[in-house]
Amino acid sequence: MIDSEEICMTDKITPDVFKRLVDLASLELKEDEGEYLRKELNNQMVSIEVLESIPIEAETGTAAHGVPYTGENSPEPRDDVSRQDPHRLDILAQAPELEDGYIVVPDISHEELD
């Protein structure tokens, strides 16, 4: 058994790191959510750290996709031309706030510099 203090010492995602992540994600958490989420993230790190034990040779490349895309099976890129989207009005109709056919974006937080 590992006692709670020891777990805390080994946590990769400390309360400070967690706070920073929540801020970067622009998430507001309920009072009882934070500690549970942090515990789960640290538990997930136990699995993720297994990756450090893989013997990887220097020349091993990275794979962005499993299946290779070659000239033979890859479609040509689309022409880089603008088109009127046929669903424009349906898309706009989904926006919570519209003005003159434009989606209203609330003020972006900023500071006035001297």
Binding site: A25, S26, L27, E28, L29, L37, E40, P106, D107, I108
Partner: peptide, 20 residues
Amino acid sequence: DLRELYRTTRGEAFGVEPKL
């Protein structure tokens, strides 16, 4: 402002898994 809208909206409408 926009950030506060993001925070509150996501906080209310994402479940545990998307948050994680």
